[in-house]
Simulated assay, not measured.
Amino acid sequence: MSSAQEIKGDAKAGESKVAMCIGCHGIKGYQATFPEVHKVPMISGQSAKYIVSALSAYRAAERKHPSMRGIADSLTDQDMADVAAYYSANGVLEGAPAIPAKPSREPSAKVAELLTKGNCISCHGDNFSKPIDPAYPKIAGQHADYLFVALKSYKVAGNAQIGRSNGVMAGVAKPFSNAELKLMANYLSTLDTELKVVPEKPFR
């Protein structure tokens, strides 16, 4: 059986399958309250392969989040591929300026030191928007509070409700204090991004 990553997604089909997504991801400024208050991540403009990877991780309980687990459990591999194809193209404008190859905003010396320690560019790219593998997320411009919650989740072990199981990211996140993770998240959120929230009509 082929994996979800090998299934070709259809953005048009995906448009009819995102009703359960738009209540959070289609509202600008929408905040989740679990595991703490934070803006839900921007997923329009994210790579399709990453969206499938994330949904698959929720379904496999490698990412622990009750609401997202329930949604992922309701999706077939084809559904995931279609939803991912839809969001990867949603709001993307042909001819839009490319994201600079290097961040236009320089980090502080402290943040630069932390990013180097984490070797973040080795996976997420020099501008944090061109990962070396599309299964990795674009993180430039993502909401700071979401990035902070996500980074902290890789440090959690043995909790049935929260946490993320990823050997690479756990190894990256655990040496940092939460204050250091917040500094990095705050900087990354200020960078040029391809990510956006595209307001969706609640009724179709």
Rank of each mutant, 00 (worst) to 15 (best):
M184T: 00
A144Y: 01
Y136K: 09
A98N: 12
Y146E: 00
N186W: 04
P41C: 06
S165E: 15
S153F: 01
I7C: 02
A140G: 09
F34E: 08
E36A: 15
N90S: 10
A185V: 09
G163F: 02
M42S: 09
I162V: 14
A48Q: 05
G158N: 12
K182H: 11
L55I: 04
I162M: 11
D126T: 13
I51Q: 03
F34T: 09
P97A: 08
G171Q: 06
E6F: 06
C123V: 02
K8S: 12
F128A: 06
H124R: 06
K102I: 10
S153L: 06
R204A: 15
I162P: 04
L151R: 02
G45H: 04
V40A: 13
E36M: 12
P66M: 12
P175Y: 10
A185Y: 03
E106T: 15
E180C: 01
R204L: 13
S129L: 00
K12L: 10
I22D: 05
A173L: 02
L191I: 01
A89Q: 13
K138T: 08
R63G: 03
Y87H: 06
Y154R: 01
P137L: 06
K17N: 03
K39S: 11
S189A: 15
F203I: 13
D145Y: 01
A144V: 02
P131D: 07
Q31G: 07
M68G: 02
S56L: 08
A81D: 05
K28H: 10
K196E: 09
A11D: 07
A160T: 09
A96C: 05
V52F: 06
G45A: 13
A61L: 13
V197N: 04
G163M: 02
G167F: 06
V168Y: 08
K196L: 10
C120K: 01
P134V: 10
L183N: 04
K196D: 07
N186A: 12
Y86S: 02
A96K: 14
H38G: 04
P175S: 05
T193A: 11
F148G: 05
